[in-house]
């Protein structure tokens, strides 16, 4: 062995931005995350040209997966054209040569902040969720060492207690986003701040999901066909947001997760949150040959 065999020629940049050693570390952790679904795996979280908290965790996972044949879709709260989503997508494409898309059906990697697309994802697709806080126990146990011990003991009593207290105080569970969910019957994870509407999409899904928190330096995964059960009491069924009867004012689609736009003088109008689904619905109504994939929700009811 010589020094020359341990180094390689100088290059200004690495393909896919991350250097080979960063990628190897992420690959090792991603495999362990798949092997223990829902369990948070620590990783180094390198610097990327973006501030921590803006999707660096998801970005590092995507940069590890991406190759020049990949087709990347990036969404922010359901929209492809938000400045954060557009910047991340353009960056990934520039450093890897991957194609960009807005269409869930043609993507191989979907990186997302706070939403899962409404169209059902396929076996060959990877969903990468950006996670601000990967620790479901943080609200009840701020000490991360004790929280780790609680995960090791499967001691989730305090989480159940917070849900119970919400029912006692407010008459219903008030947890909106980041609804804690039991994965593979063993580890409770936070599914990142996706709305309650999206949590059932992870249960026994066809696609592979990575959830990565760059600032907190942890990632976890939900492999395909893995049980993801929101924590609920047997006499209080899991409820998703009451959006089944809302209509999008621009595209006219009904029965999907909506953004509420409050109006002057009271009242609200609604726009579909998965913006590309709305765009496709408008194009289809205009007579274009657009394929809208099967959706997880049909007529406002979850039915996958």
């Amino acid at each position: 062995m010589s020094l020359a065999s341990l180094t390689k020629d100088w290059a200004a940049t690495s393909y896919g931005f991350l250097d080979a050693s960063a990628k190897r570390e992420l690959r090792r952790k991603m495999l362990k995350a798949i092997a223990v679904p829902g369990c948070q795996m620590p990783y180094a979280s390198r610097e990327v040209p973006m501030a921590r908290g803006w999707g660096t965790g998801g970005l590092q996972v995507t940069l590890t997966l991406v190759n020049s044949a990949s087709v990347v879709k990036v969404i922010d709260q359901g929209a492809d054209d938000g400045v954060n989503a557009a910047s991340i997508r353009r960056f990934i494409s520039r450093v890897s040569g991957a194609a960009e898309t807005w269409d869930t059906l043609s993507a191989t990697i979907v990186q997302s902040r706070h939403r899962i697309p409404e169209e059902i994802m396929r076996e060959d697709q990877v969903l990468v969720l950006q996670v601000p806080n990967p620790e479901p126990l943080r609200g009840v146990e701020p000490n991360i060492s004790i929280a780790r011990q609680m995960h090791a003991d499967a001691d989730y009593g305090k989480l159940w207690l917070t849900l119970y207290e919400q029912i006692v105080r407010k008459g219903r569970i008030m947890q909106g986003a980041s609804y804690p969910a039991m994965v593979n019957g063993r580890h409770v994870m936070t599914p990142s701040p996706i709305p309650r509407w999206d949590v059932p999409k992870l249960n026994m899904a066809r696609h592979l999901t990575f959830l990565s928190a760059g600032r907190e330096k942890r990632l976890h995964a939900v492999p395909p066909y893995t049980r993801v059960e929101p924590l609920v009491f047997s006499d209080r069924p899991y409820q998703v947001e009451d959006h089944a009867d809302l209509t999008c004012r621009r595209s006219g689609v009904r029965g999907f997760f909506m953004n509420e736009l409050p109006q002057d003088g009271g009242g609200s109008v609604f726009e579909v949150s998965d913006s590309n689904l709305g765009i496709k619905a408008i194009d289809k109504a205009d007579g274009s040959a657009i394929e809208i994939g099967e959706t997880w929700y049909r007529n406002g009811e979850y039915s996958a």
Partner: peptide, 20 residues
């Protein structure tokens, strides 16, 4: 400007995809 992937990167990426 981004360097094209070298042989090691191409092989590692494809290997990891298979393992994943």
């Amino acid at each position: 400007t981004v360097a094209p992937p070298d042989a090691v990167e191409l092989r590692s990426n494809a290997t990891f995809e298979a393992l994943m």
